[in-house]
């Protein structure tokens, strides 16, 4: 009985060695197979590949007011986007003007966007009834001066399509 146990123990000892060595060899085969195939390298050479780098269309980069070729944007100062934004990253500064029919209207003076507090949740873009906003594909946001992160989105000299002046 004791002899049988000893033989079993010796057999188990050699089986452990065999099992261990084969399992290690299997692991080495996986890494070895990647070593000999340089086509599996997935590194992208950034920043040299900036010219050909294209982000997806839906990528949430930076907020933009859409301007058409006549430098007109579509914002009608309804303040919906500023209300939807959870952390107050949109500030709309407007001024009141006399309209043609004698009533005061609000037109857009400065559309201030605080990139430093934006959490890219995307609640502003679908909330605009005039489809005035979009996210562009810019992802390099790093600056050395924090004041550059407060952006004014309406371009100088632009006027609003929504206001019939």
């Amino acid at each position: 009985m004791a002899l049988l146990k000893t033989i079993k123990a010796i057999g188990k000892y050699f089986y452990n060695i065999y099992d261990g060595v084969t399992s290690l060899a299997r692991g080495m085969k996986v890494t070895g197979s990647y070593f000999v195939k340089p086509s599996t390298i997935v590194t992208q050479k950034y920043p040299e590949n900036r010219a050909t780098l294209k982000m997806f269309d839906n990528f949430k980069g930076e907020l933009q007011l859409i301007h058409d070729e006549n430098n007109k944007h579509s914002c009608n100062v309804c303040n919906t986007c500023a209300r939807k934004c959870p952390n107050g990253s949109i500030e709309i500064i407007y001024k009141k003007v006399e309209g043609a029919d004698g009533r005061t209207k609000k037109i857009l003076d400065k559309y201030v966007y605080h990139l430093e507090t934006c959490s890219f949740c995307g609640l502003c873009v679908p909330s605009c009834d005039e489809f005035a906003l979009k996210f562009d594909q810019e992802f390099e946001h790093a600056v050395f001066d924090r004041s550059k992160l407060t952006k004014v989105l309406n371009k100088p000299g632009s006027s609003s399509k929504a206001m019939k002046e």
């Binding site: 997806f56 839906n58 990528f59 949430k60 949740c121 995307g122 679908p126 996210f135």
Partner: peptide
């Protein structure tokens, strides 16, 4: 994992924090 993140990015626009599922359905 990059393959899955590409799927996310194409639809929702972000890789990690998507905020895509909202009360009432989906954002888009």
């Amino acid at each position: 994992r990059e393959h899955i993140l590409d799927i996310f990015e194409e639809t929702t626009g972000s890789r990690l924090t998507q905020s895509f599922i909202t009360p009432g359905g989906l954002m888009a």
